[in-house]
Write a protein that binds this DNA or RNA. Structure first.
Lengths: 199, 199, 199, 199
DNA sequence: TATGAATGAGATTTCATTCAT
DNA sequence: TATGAATGAAATCTCATTCAT
């Protein structure tokens, strides 16, 4: 989006690959620079340090992604806009930015984004929760919710790892939604049973 | 179980902590030795190398865990033994060996156990699959299955991260089972719809 | 020959000394760096690793040396060019590159040049063999030939160790040639006696 | 010869192999102990240190070898005893103690025996020199003598490396003697020419 | 903008040797 | 005699970062 020198672009491209391969902490700046055919000195002109380079790779996508999630959540909760259309847009975005999203969700340990996964999961879960917060009071409920949400985020990650095309991703995310919805319903039945002593 | 010198025990304890904190690759032998108050030379008396130390931390648990999973799977598939009792034993084992299991499932990249997660997931999925392999032929089915299984393994990991007591874990694993079963059923309904063009 | 930074030159000089003193495997990079007044980190800026440093010390000389030997051999075998002049040039080269040649012939165990001694000996022996291959068929002959050639290479090494000037080296190599030629002739007489049962 | 515990014998055997493989300096006491199935502590009961272990491997043979050489030299110089018979005995000894002799001549750098090669060469050369010391006064002569002697020692080393049987060794040493004698004579002719300005 | 050079700490691993028991 | 444990220094190599030009 922002104008970049060719050098900077090459660095970001090489960094993306390296972060995806090894994760932030194991990634080697040397290798990134070598791959980008740029001296380390030059790299430090464009980026303050390793963290800054990482941020440059993912920042825009992170922001945009959260925006999309929130819009969709809003839509589900308040019935504003076309929820299905939003889901499609989200999938499109995931699909065209697989690498960055995978980095954010699975390769960001040690960075300022290491909680992105949690944040994203929380946002995704909002719509979800809206219907069930009658149980929300108990700590137990919150714990099991976290668990479920994290599983679902893992589902997204696995989907991205799969490197599927748009069609497959739409299909899979629909299946995952079905899985999540039915699963949640089934679980809640049992949860009520457990917590209320009712069958 | 096996008798150990105090030093070796201290090393294993420190290693467990460090591997859990940073993962195998980022873990520092220096730090482990310092924490255990042992010189690096002494460490190399007890362990052949970093990998060997890692193995010493997790090997027994890994073996035992796979045995438990397989027994349970067998029980579910062939109706041998008391499946619920087995689940309880498994949970007990997970509960008393949280650290090692989390290391195995989430911190073993770069070691000979880096595929443990997959292996474990596969074993867990066996019982599961038994009922549904009529769809097994399509690549799509296999892909979505992998996805689901990995989500479930992530569920276990999250449960272990939670540091819950035995009671909670029993409750949560029951809920997760309910979630998984209902979810799977719901998803399959849609899957048939998608793949067979039937509603 | 190629332009080098002062640091790199200092490293190569220190390395040459250390390799000559201790041989490749026992040579200490620490000591080389200390002698060159360079941090190990800096050393790794210029050289990929210990082997690369070694190669940088000897590569050019190794290549040139083999070229000279082959030219001389050709000259002896095919009568092309002035063989004596070639010998003089060879000696001159040996004389001005004593250290590197000694390293190549006697201190390169563990490196990619560890067979240089054999290769060099083989090349030297070519001219030699041309006249005597009528005996070449027997395994015994080949064994004794190897032995003789290795002795001669050792002669070169000892000459280099002696740190003689050009004049001495020319004289010595002439003497060694006389020694080798007469010796070989004398030996062959006996060899025929032994192998053919003739006196 | 001296009585040894089985342990000590095992250590010496393992040490011999390791020294032969890697040379004194690169040899690993750990490996020797492991191969001998002996703890390092036990090893240090039998041997003061690495050097002492080395000495225990080679001392007797070194002494005996020098004795044999000196006897032979005496015989050649003073005509005492049967020189040929002595040569045979020497070869027999070399043949039955190949490993130790090779260690002494080629793998002893860094030990108290590192000059054995020189010493041995000098002893071998004595008989040799007796006939030619009319030239002995010049430094040049001494230098070329050293060179020749070292070549011959190298010849022995190569013969030992060859792992030949007694028969072959007798044959080869006879050939080497013929080579040396004829070679020396031929060289001396030229040497006189060079040094006396006579043709 | 960019280079090339350098730093210094840290990584894992191996070593000969010592020592209490 | 022998063991098991421990030491501490040294080995090669990698790292993110800095800086003068």
């Amino acid at each position: 989006m922002s104008e970049q020198s060719a050098t900077k672009a090459r660095l970001i491209k090489a960094a993306k690959k390296e972060f995806l391969d090894k994760g932030y902490e194991k990634a080697s700046l040397r290798k990134i620079c070598a791959d980008a055919d740029v001296t380390t000195g030059a790299m430090y002109f464009f980026f303050k340090n390793k963290q800054d380079l990482f941020t440059s790779v993912v920042a825009e996508k992170a922001e945009h992604l959260l925006k999309l999630v929130k819009r969709q959540t809003d839509s589900e909760v308040n019935g504003v806009g076309n929820s299905e259309e939003y889901q499609r847009e989200m999938n499109e975005y995931l699909c065209s930015n697989k690498d960055e999203v995978r980095i954010l969700l699975d390769k960001s340990a040690g960075t300022e984004y290491e909680n992105f996964r949690e944040e994203y999961g929380f946002a995704v879960a909002q719509g979800f929760f809206a219907f069930y917060d009658k149980f929300g009071g108990t700590a137990e409920y919150r714990d099991i919710m976290k668990l479920i949400v994290r599983m679902r985020v893992q589902g997204y990650i696995e989907m991205l790892k799969g490197d599927y095309d748009m069609d497959k991703m739409m299909k899979f995310s629909a299946l995952m939604e079905a899985y999540g919805d039915s699963g949640f319903a089934g679980m809640m039945k049992q949860f009520k049973g457990i917590t209320e002593g009712v069958e």
